[in-house]
Design a protein around this nucleic acid. Structure first.
Lengths: 338, 338
DNA sequence: ACCGTGACGGCAATCGTTTTCCTAGTTTCC
DNA sequence: GGAAACTAGGAAAACGATTGCCGTCACGGT
């Protein structure tokens, strides 16, 4: 029970099977030429001692550790998680293990992690974070490939996989146009936030292609429900009529939705509403359920991991790769048929 | 730039410094007796080659890898994240790196991870998951210590750190009593869910100690806002008067809050409202901000990591350890002074 | 001059595996 | 019957770092 048995070594296995260590190794790895009977005897011995080859010793020889490091530069949050999970999944399928490092917005800590990972001889690294903005590369001249996921590296030669936020915003606008809305307002996060600016610009641009424009300049604020509710006050006080609101996040949309209902405007009959992020907690609790843009973060993480694996195997994909977003339609933009 | 330099070995350093590898090692680790000048020369060579000792080779010798595995048995979610982060933080401070493994509710996958981690010779493992229920041990007779965090092991001899949900529920009730409410209703998650049962039972028990009881049997349903809204319908349709609702989660509380307002009941004047989990997204967006019980998951993770470190160093803490919850008071239970 | 004593560093074993090379046997074939 | 050709498995050299043990100086005391 509490007894913690020592780890068996291949020497133990060899002794039990009555062969040399070299032979034991060959038997277990299917190398060399051995009698089938010997092979079985070694396997049986290994099973009996529940032998697992020491990965460290093995990689000492092979030069590969089948290990990668994942660093989040700022604290791990709602956005980094799916990215990490997608990457972990894709890497696990490739028999690679993942070191998790939470940088917590501290450059010192970050550099410490890079050093540690290098000393552990990871085969590669994935860097992610909480916002899509470009950031300084995590190190120069690193001896292993690095892929940036969700965030991107300021060095255009580095490999970054980022969500196609502009494309997502365009899809949102296109959907509103498709359901017959033309007087569209935009409520989003703080203007200093890259995502807010990119999404707002793409929305305006897409409208312009149809000879339209937002009914009012984008309302920049915070990413919260509270701001969404406040923004509705501003919109209603303004003299511009609107029949749709495109929100920079689902939380904002949720706030907008509640405030519109409180003000007697029906969603979607009077005002169609679309969010961004497709966060189930918000889209499902919203009344009515919220149409939104899904960044497919898990797919993005998976894709980043695949690029890393390719780079490790000698085929890097330098540059910035945009990962497409997906429109998910729910009742907040579609008038019920009844 | 793209040039990936090979990793320098201690032999390279020794050669550049003009000493033997043994001497180089001693110089870098402060062992042996060397002239200060030699030491400096070696250090300089190491710096120049940006040498980092190969952790795998080193642990081959020391028998320790300074590495632990973290396995989530079900998918990583809102509850496991803070636990993982707390643990990662505590372990990082102890110079240990963390392998992340997402079991995704698949026992096969889980066993595969255990095998992998053992082959990587982790010094210990932390097992976590999405629900607090006890689960079958992840393995019998493992050669390294294991600590269960948030979830617990069915084997009482294993070390588990779990939130004191019953204590949290008692604190919630005590707070409601303290603000003068006595006719308390309880709306919570599905009855088959361990947390729902434990919290409901503890609430009833605490009331009984004051000779009180819930105004109606606990309403078991789901963990969602939608259920919270429905539950208010049920409560209002029943003939029992109530001046407070203790909810099994913040999402439920949020739903209850919205529905109460829609029905013309004021929070907290007519009905005091308290949630569970202290999830900022919900507590802040709620109108008014929600009083809640914080499980202190990050602290729990940290504590689990510390127990693991202790166990690795030979002082295990077998058994089930309850981690205290914390009451966080906001406006949903405190009538404004004005 | 000789011996004892530190101070400094080199040598080699060790950790656990893989892999190359090599040596006995055993066949096979002329 | 003897050489060539296999076959099965052992011995030992890596891989990168640490560490205990020794050898070699220089120096001082008698």
């Amino acid at each position: 029970m509490g007894k913690l048995e020592r780890h068996a070594t291949i020497a133990d296995v060899a002794a039990l099977a009555g062969v040399s260590v070299g032979t034991a190794s060959k038997a277990l790895n299917g190398r060399g030429s051995l009698r089938e009977e010997t092979r079985m005897r070694v396997r049986e011995a290994a099973r009996q001692l529940s032998f697992e080859a020491n990965a460290g010793a093995r990689s000492l020889h092979s030069g590969r550790t089948y290990t990668v490091g994942m660093i989040t530069t700022d604290t791990i949050g709602r956005f980094s998680i799916p990215v990490l999970m997608g990457a972990e999944d894709a890497l696990g399928a490739g028999e690679m293990s993942v070191f998790l490092c939470d940088g917590r917005d501290d450059p010192i800590r970050e550099q410490y992690y890079v050093k540690t990972l290098l000393s552990r001889r990871v085969d590669g690294m994935i860097v992610t974070g909480r916002r899509t903005e470009a950031r300084a590369p995590i190190g120069a001249n690193l001896p292993v490939p690095v892929v940036y996921a969700f965030i991107s590296s300021a060095d255009p030669g580095d490999c970054s996989v980022v969500p196609d936020e502009a494309g997502g915003a365009r899809k949102a606008v296109e959907h509103l146009l498709a359901v017959g809305r033309t007087r569209i307002a935009h409520v989003t996060g703080p203007e200093h936030h890259n995502s807010a600016r990119v999404r707002a610009a793409a929305a305006s641009e897409r409208l312009a292609e149809d000879g339209l424009s937002l009914v009012a300049p984008p309302l920049f604020g915070g990413w919260s429900e509270v701001w969404g509710r406040q923004a509705v006050g501003i919109l209603l006080a303004g003299r511009a009529e609107f029949d749709a609101v495109f929100c920079g996040s689902d939380q904002i949309a949720r706030g907008v939705c509640d405030a519109l209902r409180a003000a007697g405007r029906r969603v979607p009959q009077d005002v169609a509403l679309i969010g961004f992020d497709n966060w189930d907690v918000m889209t499902e609790a919203c009344q009515p359920p919220l149409t939104s843009i899904d960044l497919d973060l898990e797919g993005l993480g998976r894709s980043a991991a695949e690029m890393l694996l390719a780079a490790i195997n000698g085929s890097p994909s330098p540059g910035r790769h945009a990962h497409p977003c997906r429109l998910v339609v729910r009742e907040s933009t579609t008038v019920p048929l009844t």
